[in-house]
């Protein structure tokens, strides 16, 4: 049994780092372009370990992000649950996609994530009237190759499975 759970702390560690990156102070002019680090890391692990990282992981991580961002409890939980569900549906295809196809898919997935967040913000009368809220989806897709190579390296080095 212990063989199956190998390297769990690596997964946890990457999620913690994603949290730190998500709260890192950002220059004001880049504020709206901040990539969704946690969503990217979640997508990677859901593709790589679909039998371990699933909807419950997404929901719990989302609650954590809600607390960090100070938004309504459940906003990111909702969007990350849906995101992990989509990843679980697509993981077989995503594994065989080339990098460009993967980036495009990640753009759409994080775009859906952003739209769900906007819905919850709109319930409170907040949020954007323009389409600028999709900018993080674009920057996240740009960072996907980096995340992919880093996390794949980590997964192989520590034999996470």
């Amino acid at each position: 049994m212990s063989r199956e759970q190998h390297g769990y702390w690596v997964v946890l560690g990457t999620f913690l780092i994603a949290y730190v990156l998500a709260t890192m102070p950002f220059p004001a002019w880049l504020h709206r372009a901040r990539p969704e680090w946690l969503a990217l890391v979640l997508i990677y692990w859901a593709i790589a370990l679909p039998h371990r990282v699933g909807v419950y992981t997404g929901a719990l991580l989302g609650i954590g992000l809600d607390v960090l961002e100070g938004v309504v409890l459940g906003q990111n939980a909702l969007s990350l649950t849906v995101l992990s569900l989509i990843s679980l549906f697509l993981y077989q295809r995503l594994r065989v996609f080339n990098l460009w196809q993967q980036c495009a898919t990640v753009f759409i997935m994080i775009g859906i994530n952003q739209i769900l967040c906007q819905w919850v913000l709109a319930l409170q009368g907040l949020g954007d009237r323009s389409l600028w809220f999709l900018l993080p989806a674009f920057t996240s897709a740009l960072f996907w190759p980096v995340i992919l190579h880093l996390l794949r390296g980590l997964r192989r080095a520590y034999q996470v499975n």
Partner: peptide
């Protein structure tokens, strides 16, 4: 992967989260 059971779990979570919100 059992997709149907995952969708059920996801639906359950979404309902709980909606109540939370």
């Amino acid at each position: 992967f059992k997709e149907s059971s995952v969708v059920l779990h996801a639906l359950l979570i979404v309902v709980v989260v909606a109540i939370l919100i």
